[in-house]
Amino acid sequence: ALVAAAVLVSDLVPPAFVVPFLVCAAILPVFTLSMMQDGIARSFDWVNLALVPLFVVQPVMILAVMGGLKLFDGPMDAVAALVTAGVAMWLVTLAQTLLLGRRLAGAVPPGRRRHDLRHWLAVSLPVFVVDGFFLLLFYVDILVLQLYVDPREVAIYYAASKTLSLVHFISFAVGAAVAHRFSTYHVTGEREKLEGFIADAVRWTFWPTLAFGLLLIVLGKPILMLFGPGFEAGYPLIAIIMIGLIARGAVGPAERLLNMTGQQRLCAVVYAVALATNLTLCVVLIPRQGIFGAAWATAGAVVVESLLLFLVVKRRLGLHAFVWQPRRRG
């Protein structure tokens, strides 16, 4: 379908965009397979098999190939980078498929296949909505900015916000490592273990987030200067956006906890409210404050998201998903 769409609109868009789009279309199916295998592997506590192929082996392969192209004066453009990334993803995903198949053969006894499409859709659609709203939450500011400021300011804001991607990775890494444990303790009724584990997960998220955020605040200006002259103007944005990320780290992988305990619909509502908050604040603040308005809008929306996640976890599950735990009485 994506290839057909690219062919239909090829006369309406610049040619430089068509080939990269087709390459991405060829990568999408194997990316989907990789994400599915990631989830299966983590559900069996095979974290290395889940994460190492995509997040370690593939980047190393891309760096090696692109470094070789640079060394031997090969093509260094978007198409070359996308083709390299696509081939690397196909190779690591196929290797992951073989390794996962061997492990599953020893862990899962053979039996009849059974498909429960209705139940699968009931569970997966809210999770799909959560992921969609999560992505939009961190891109709606860029989309609105393009309507009000010039491309150079958008570039400065993008450089500053994406410099903080390393901080985002802490939350992702902790969530990927612990989510299946939430489900295990919830299903087996091990309440005390679940309470202790969510407290640990929050601390594993918050303190590295705080430490790394402070480090980026210290080194933010030199990092932004690497993007080119004038990009250091985005340095104050790092501190503003960090307010939201620290608030997000203070509740740890609370959204994973909700998803893994059957509360995925409430989680979707939380992210819908956060997205609406971000969009509203962007429309109000960006025309008045430009890129700083976008930063305050994003930080405010993430603070709202974090507060709502804490309240939903507390009221629906009776768990305290916050970095500072209340004192136990008696």
Rank of each mutant, 00 (worst) to 15 (best):
L279M: 12
V87C: 00
V30I: 01
V57S: 02
I240D: 13
V60Y: 07
A179P: 14
R102Q: 13
G244Y: 01
Q37P: 14
R191A: 11
P109A: 09
L224R: 09
E305R: 02
I243A: 12
L285W: 01
P253Y: 11
Y158E: 14
S171P: 15
H119V: 05
K70W: 10
G244K: 04
R327W: 11
G244V: 09
L135N: 04
L125S: 15
L121I: 04
V144K: 00
A254Q: 07
N278D: 11
D38K: 05
M61N: 07
E255A: 09
G106N: 13
L210W: 06
S165A: 03
A176T: 12
H186Y: 08
L104P: 14
V129K: 07
P151Y: 02
V251Q: 09
R248E: 14
G330N: 01
L82C: 08
V83M: 09
M36H: 02
A254L: 10
A64S: 13
G234C: 13
H119M: 08
H320K: 06
F31Q: 13
V79N: 14
E305Q: 10
L125C: 06
E305M: 02
A6S: 15
L2C: 00
L281T: 01
W204Y: 11
F169D: 04
F169E: 05
L257K: 03
A274R: 04
Y158R: 15
T277D: 14
L257R: 07
F31I: 14
G189M: 07
I240W: 11
D150T: 05
P126K: 12
R248S: 08
L285A: 03
L69D: 06
V18C: 10
E153F: 03
R112Y: 13
V273F: 05
C282K: 00
W207E: 09
F72C: 15
W296G: 07
P14V: 00
F21A: 15
V149C: 00
L104A: 05
R113G: 13
V30C: 04
L311Q: 06
Y157G: 01
L82T: 02
Y271V: 14
R103V: 15
Y235C: 15
D11G: 07
S34C: 10
L275V: 03
E192F: 02
S165Q: 05
A294S: 00
S183H: 07
Q289C: 09
L307N: 07
V92C: 02
L317T: 02
A16N: 01
R329E: 10
P253T: 15
S10Y: 01
L266C: 03
F134W: 14
A85C: 08
V167N: 02
V302T: 03
V323A: 03
V140E: 10
A1G: 15
I238V: 01
G86Q: 04
T32K: 13
S161H: 06
G228P: 06
A64G: 12
S34M: 14
V323C: 02
F231A: 05
D200S: 05
G300E: 08
V313G: 03
A276R: 01
L257M: 11
L210N: 05
R152S: 05
L309Q: 00
A122F: 13
S34L: 09
G106W: 11
Y271E: 01
S183Q: 00
I142P: 04
F172A: 14
Q264N: 11
Q263R: 14
V92R: 05
R315L: 02
G67M: 13
I198P: 10
G293Q: 09
S10W: 04
Y157F: 11
L307V: 12
G213C: 12
L216K: 04
V202C: 00
